[in-house]
Amino acid sequence: MTDSTDEPQREQITTKIWREEAEPDNPFAASTCYCSGYDVYGDLLGKISLIEYIWLLFKLEPPNESQAKIFESLAVALANPGPRDHSVRAAMNAGVGGSTRASALIAAISVGAGNLGGSREVYTTVQYWQQCGADLKAWQKIITNPPKDERADVWPEFEHTPGFDPNGACCPTPVRQLLDHLCTFDGTDTLQWLKNHRLDLEGYSQTPLTFSGVAAATFFDLEFEPEQAEIIYLILRLPGAAAHALEQEKIGFSRYPFFANGLTLTDDPGPVSCHE
C-alpha cells in the first residue's frame, strides 16, 4: 500500500517500518504512528517491552517468547562492558573533560565499532557463521586461513580471529556464564554447537572466545543479518558507556587516569634553546 497518491510529484521516503497519519490541522504532525502495522501509541505502548520493540523495528514481526528472552539476555549482558572497556573509556574521556553528552556516545560508538571487541568484529563473525555454520572443518579452515579482500578498505585488516580475544588467556567466566545461560533457551542450535566446540575453536585460534563471539552466535541464531548484528551490538553497549560518562563527569578529571608517567617518548629532541 502507499500514501503517495496525492503527492506524486514529491520525493518520498520509502519504508516498510513506519507509517503516519497526519493530524487534521497539521500535515507535519502525526496523529497516528504505525510500526510494521502496529499502532505505536494506541496499541503497543503499555503492552510491548523495549527489547520486543527493538526486535519489531528490525524484523518487522514480533519475536516468539524464546527469541525475546534470548535477545533480552544478550541486551543485559552487553549493556555495560565496564569502565575498562575501550568504548566505555572513550565515553568517560568525554565525561571528565566536560564534553557534550552526545560526544560521549559518539566516542563510545566510534571506538566500539572496531575489529577488537567492537561491532565490526560481530559483523565479521556473523559472516563466518553464515559461511561455516556447524561445520568444524570449515571453522578450522577459516580460522587458520582467514579470507582476505585484495582491495583496501577503510576498515583495517583483522589482526586476530574475530570473536576471540587476542590478549586473552582462558575463556573468562562471564563469557561462559552468558553462553551457558543462552543455551538454556530453545532455538539456540548455533550457541549449543559453540558451547560444545568452544575448546576446538579456541584451539584453532589459540585465543579464548569473547563476548563479541557469543554475541555473533546469538545474532546468527536469531537470524539477524550481519549488518543488523553490527548496528544492534553498538546500540546495546551504549547504556553502560552513557552511565559511566556521566559518573566521571561528576567525579572529574583529577580522579581519572591520565597516565602521567605512562608515556615514554623514544624520539625526543629535548628542550630547544630558543625557548629559554
Partner: peptide
C-alpha cells in the same frame, strides 16, 4: 527540507494489527 506525513511512502504490512504480549503472532 521539512517533510509532511505524506512524504512517507509506506510499503509495509497492513496497519490493522494488535499486539498480543508474549505470543508469536
Amino acid at each position: 527540507f521539512p517533510l509532511s506525513t505524506g512524504r512517507i511512502n509506506y510499503i509495509g504490512a497492513p496497519t490493522d494489527k494488535n499486539w498480543l504480549p508474549g505470543d508469536n503472532q
